[in-house]
Amino acid sequence: MTTFFEARQLVSPGTLLAEGNYQAGFNVYRENGKYYASMVGLADVRNNMISVIPLRGCYIPQPGDIVIGKVVECISTAWMLDIRSPYQGVLFASEFLSKPLNPLKEEARRYLDVGEMVIATVIAFDRTRNPSLTARDHGLGKVHRGTVIDVDFTRVPRIIGKKGSMITMLKKETGAQILVGQNGRVWISGKSRDEEAIIAEAIRKIEAEAHTTGLTDRIREFLVNSRR
């Protein structure tokens, strides 16, 4: 059992990572007892599991993820949502409204129109069918106020931080409501547009400097300075 990389070393597809009795984690594949990277990223081994933290890539829905979707199409009893993934999300009327929707009597567009944003969770996804979403839970539903910004999907873990350290700090320092969708969209609702713009800028900064040390402190400093 040997690994051929240093902790958090930059690897690219085809790089031999390890040999022996390991488990293949994210972005790692096994061939003839050897483990190779399948993406550019930082190699990591934890609890015998070898994985690559990706530096590029797109969002693949996982059941339970909170996502922020943009309505792109209204069908008679469902909406198609762009969730920044190769697969569009399907939000059935029964998963959004508290009462049944009769397509003969009313149009789905009355409740949710193209271009509007929805906070939802992924119920099920197996790549053979588009991911189905639900917005019938606490804190989910149509976005009525605030700002939604797109961020790089690979930076989402950094925006949340270790055990939520970054997001907790952002909320505490600004008093705003912030929700990070797993699909690389962030909803910010503050007291004013200006405040939302400052938070958005802070998030852009996190995105740009994602893999640097002491980032939480620097962002706090940035927020304190820009409030003055």
Partner: peptide, 11 residues
């Protein structure tokens, strides 16, 4: 393809 983040066996 690497830059697009598409999983590959090798370059």
């Amino acid at each position: 393809l690497v830059d697009a983040g598409i999983p590959m066996r090798d370059l």
